[in-house]
Design a protein around this nucleic acid. Sequence first.
RNA 1: GCUCCCGUAGCUCAGAGGAUAGAGCGUUGGUUUCCUAAACCAAAGGUCAUAGGUUCGAAUCCUAUCGGGAGCGCCA
Length: 572
Amino acid sequence: MIIELIRQLINKIVLTNWPSIRLPKFTVEISKNSKHLDYASNISMILEGITKQSSNLIAKFIAEKLVADPRIELVDIVNPGFINIKVSNRILYQALNVAISKGSQYGVHESLGKSVLLEFVSANPTGPLHLGHARSAFMGDAISRILKASGYNVTKEFYINDVGNQIETLGNTIYARYMQLFGLNIKLKENAYPGEYIIDIARHLKEQDGDKWINRNDYLQRCIEIGIKENLENIQKVLNISGIEFDTWYSEKSLHDKGLIEAILNKYQELGVLYNADEAETGNKIRREDSQAAKFIINQEGGTFLKTSCFGDEEDRILVRKNGIPVYLVADIAYHKEKFDRKFDRIINIFGADHAGHVLKICACMRALGIDISNFEFLLVQMVHLLEDGKDIRLSKRSGKIISLEDFVNHVGADAARFIFLMKSPNTQFDFDLNIINSTSKDNLLYYIQYAHARIANITSKFKKIEKLQEDILEKLILPEEFNMIKKIDSYPEVVKLSALTLEPHRIFFFCKELVSEFHSYYTKYKYTEKIISDNYQLTQARIGLISAVRQVIFNSLNLLGITASESMYNK
RNA sequence: GCUCCCGUAGCUCAGAGGAUAGAGCGUUGGUUUCCUAAACCAAAGGUCAUAGGUUCGAAUCCUAUCGGGAGCGCCA
């Protein structure tokens, strides 16, 4: 990686000549403007602030040292102290060879020996996954691939909320549907789940148990059991067709069974961070009167509170209701404490933006346990507004029901679904018109990229796979566009790293688009004059090697996003 | 009222404090006897919401205001 090489050269110069300072953050990047040579750094302007020397002088000094290295061909200084660098062709050729020889492993970093726990989706097992789950599902999956490629050992986890009121509602709804199957006119309760999938579950219950549960009071356990089982199977099936696989499924019920709920409460008690609402002292922030929570004031009397407001939360949170039953938050605390006990180097939660309110809460609860949360990260994924012909499609037109993820993936295809939800930064909400996936022009970035892959595959298919190019062959590559593509290819591993650091898969897409655009442009510009396949054997080999590397980088990029790259667009 | 995200071209969005703010769509005009035209080239289009501040330098960081979204239950 040439950027890394230049960075290290600069590091060394700075540390030798300003031994007393701490190495500051500075940039080395591919120059955007060809006037600025190959690479550019802002180191001297940064150093100016630290050393109080003029940035132009610093730049001059560093430039002299840099140019002494045989790998640096030319250094130019531009006001107020930009250092522009032209590197030798030789290291560019070497960089290309690295990409060619690493093949599908190009961009995959060596193991860091570090582990990440990545929790995402964690949808309640009370019904099928729907469009609202799509973005965080694909985002989590892509991030896990990117983290793996940048050297982390990743565990993808799905937390199953298999306890609580919603689960009881599920059981009761199934029972009502079950009774209806026997012609008994049981009305659904107001809060019951209306979906037809419940009827299917009830039918299966009838098939398995017959009329066993008619007019009995002890049906709930059985109904919950079959409901959770079938809903989870359905969730797994949909994840499967979407190309998403989890490593661990963590049951909330298991926390209860192991007695970890009481353990948490005891621990807080020991730490002296609990108080009883009836004995609240002045300064205890039980609730904000201006919040919407105030609407529920009638139900809010008594109970045991945790002093979360002392640990960064806006207010104290109730842990145990007046009737002695802990609220769900306690299980969530127990679950997150388990995550920390399992000793991961990074713990990442991917939440939909509608769960943003939990971030402060959970962090405060962890701090109250004395846990260091510096390796605890949240990625809040914003909503996508899907349109078709300019109309909102969040709800299906016919039934008015929420569109299932299954229907959606079957409708647009897994690749397009991933593309839609991964193409933009996770923390921007955006509009997407579904008509675009049928478009055959450049607005459909997915096809644009896949087309380039197929185009190259078609050209290179006439040649043997190249493992490595000899220097005399590489030297045939002299066009500026060829050097630019090599620089781009060379920067790919950096893009993977940055994407892992920021948890932003869309960076891979944009990088890929830029590389592809350079290729198409190159291809067209020289279509009549400097063809890739020519009578000159060595030149042809060199260019086939170059575009093979471009194809490989496209392939590897799409792979990080879980998207396939086809050899041909004709038989797609 | 409070918290979080966003505000960049007509539209949809990029832009980890750097040089002349970019791309696609749309608009206008060009490129196919030739390795995939699902492509390419060019033109037009901007007070980076507003006002202050920090800095050698701000779309980017800080503060305030305005506008859009999500959330603020003893539901999970």
